[in-house]
């Protein structure tokens, strides 16, 4: 474990806590894409199957359990508890265009041709694009609550922190995980546009609004 990865994981943890806090305090999931949240459940469940047969560390174990359970909890909040505040009519990204290509990529690129390894690859590819329905929704409505932008910023920072972690591990441990690294770079790049508006507007005290 190095500081870059720790900051990344803490940022990921923070993003989920911010999202749950936003939904609970405003009693609304307005502005949150259900499709993106459902994709994250798919990502975590397909990636963390190794919980059942591989022990890494106590830290690793609890983080995995937290990511699976919190993402399921968010789906419950959106579909049950605060269902009336969820508006599917603006959440229109076609996720089959993400699921299909990620499945094909996972069948081509993996470290071993086993069910769990292909699912692991699939989860890495899917995670890199899972935010697209959310960003698409933001683009469509052209605005977002400030708390929602903090959630997105923390989530974007998470994979961004992993990039220096991979460089550090390349120098200190002499290993490269090309599937994780390329997907991680794509994932971070998708946030650049959002980060630009976040830094120039939200952090200057203005509302998150996209130019018409």
């Amino acid at each position: 474990m190095n500081l870059f990865r720790l900051f990344g994981d803490m940022s990921h943890l923070a993003s989920i806590l911010i999202l749950v806090h936003k939904i609970q305090t405003t009693r609304s999931c307005r502005g949150i894409s259900f499709k993106t949240q459902a994709l994250y459940v798919t990502v975590f469940v397909s990636r963390y199957l190794d919980l059942f047969y591989d022990w890494v560390s106590l830290y690793n174990f609890f983080m995995k359990v937290f990511f699976i359970s919190s993402s399921c909890y968010i789906l419950y909040l959106m579909k049950m508890k605060f269902r009336p505040t969820n508006d599917p009519s603006i959440d229109t990204f076609r996720i089959e265009y993400l699921l299909g290509p990620c499945a094909i990529l996972a069948l081509i690129f993996h470290y071993k041709f086993t069910v769990t390894e292909v699912l692991w690859s699939f989860s890495i590819f899917l995670e890199s694009v899972a935010i697209l329905p959310q960003l698409f929704m933001l683009q469509r409505t052209g605005e977002a609550e400030t708390i929602t932008t903090h959630y997105l910023a923390a989530l974007g920072a998470y994979r961004a922190f992993y990039i220096p972690n991979w460089i550090y591990r390349y120098w200190t441990e002499d290993i490269v995980d090309p599937i994780a690294v390329t997907s991680g770079i794509v994932q971070t790049a998708l946030y650049l546009d959002f980060f630009y508006v976040y830094f120039t507007k939200v952090l200057q005290g203005q509302k998150f609004e996209l130019p018409a």
Binding site: M1, R5, D9, H12, D50, D54, V56, S57, N60, M63, K64, F67, Y111, K112, E117, W120, Y162, R169, Y170, D174, I175, V176, D177, P178, I179, A180
Partner: peptide, 10 residues
């Protein structure tokens, strides 16, 4: 550098 599936990352 050798490539590998790094299993300790989340």
């Amino acid at each position: 550098a050798p490539t590998a599936h790094v299993k300790d990352e989340l």
